[in-house]
Design a protein around this nucleic acid. Structure first.
Length: 274
DNA sequence: CTATTTGTTTATCC
DNA sequence: AGGATAAACAAATA
């Protein structure tokens, strides 16, 4: 489920825990989400720590606690964050619960493709902001100013022969972009998902850059804020309906596997170069 | 019962 | 080398 907008939404769900201390950690220790940091070490590191701040980068989340302690979370395909009452009893898919004074912070993930990391120590990002040690050297996010035309051109130059659908899903290039956002960007730019950077006119390259910025920022404004759906003019509102039609051309939408993922596009509006 | 899924990693082949 | 593809992970939903 989560791409950068949904990740930002889930980040805020744990805000009620800011300034509170972890009194108890309830962990489903055998769950696959603890494959990198064992449940035992997560428990040991977080117990007694106060939550100070939270951060998102692409599809990654980081929660900073007292004494330079970090909890990292990747939500995978089905991960969700929410809060419950401190006395809640974790259900089948609620693998990690941080019990605080007034609230319990819950990580639920029924498919268990997500993961958690816990460690101590602090690094700095490009702007001098404190980040967890494993966030050193992360690429700029598409919604940020640092993701500018020069950065965009660099990405295209590095991958002249890659299909754009696959390139947009590359987290080293477009951190936070996932399946539906990639389709939305290509549709808004009127570019066929199997086209390659080398196929694009300079006009299309500009359209792709603008659509990348617009979709990222607008998705954060709608979904990232309170999970409001984007407007009817977006592909988003039509892509999962059976018999869905393109809001621009009115023609039926098509679903094909491109770049290894189900891709929704409008052939009438997104013509391939070759 | 079968097919599908908004993510990532690894192996394999071209 | 760079890119495409399939499989694996797991469980709900149609």
């Amino acid at each position: 489920m989560p791409e950068l907008a949904e990740v930002e939404y889930f980040r805020k769900q744990w805000d009620p825990g800011l300034g509170e201390r972890v009194h108890k950690v309830r962990a489903r220790a055998q769950a696959r989400i603890f494959r990198e940091s064992a449940a035992q070490s997560v428990i040991q590191l977080l117990n007694g720590r106060e939550m100070r701040s939270s951060h998102a980068h692409g599809k990654q989340l980081a929660f900073r606690f007292s004494e330079e302690t970090w909890l990292g979370i990747h939500l995978g395909m089905s991960g969700r964050l929410y809060t419950g009452a401190p006395e809640m009893v974790p259900g089948k898919h609620e693998h990690l619960v941080l019990v605080m004074d007034s609230v319990a912070l819950v990580y639920s993930d029924y498919r268990k493709f997500g993961k958690v990391l816990a460690a101590r120590g602090t690094a700095r990002d490009a702007t001098g902001r404190k980040v967890p040690p494993w966030w050193e050297g992360l690429p700029p996010q598409p919604q940020e100013g640092a993701f500018d035309k020069a950065r965009f051109r660099e990405i295209l130059r590095q991958h002249p022969g890659r299909r754009l659908k696959a390139l947009l899903l590359d987290q080293d290039a477009f951190p936070g972009i996932g399946n539906w956002m990639a389709d939305e960007i290509l549709w808004q730019a009127r570019i066929h998902p199997a086209d390659r950077p080398g196929d694009l006119s300079s006009h299309k390259r500009n359209k792709l850059f603008e659509a990348t910025k617009d979709v990222s920022r607008e998705a954060l404004r709608y979904i990232g804020k309170d999970w409001t759906d984007p407007p009817e003019s977006w592909l988003f509102r039509h892509r999962w309906k059976k018999g869905g039609t393109c809001p621009a051309s009115g023609k039926p939408l098509v679903h094909e596997t491109i770049g290894g993922r189900t891709t929704c596009f409008c052939p009438a509006v997104q013509k391939p170069k070759h």
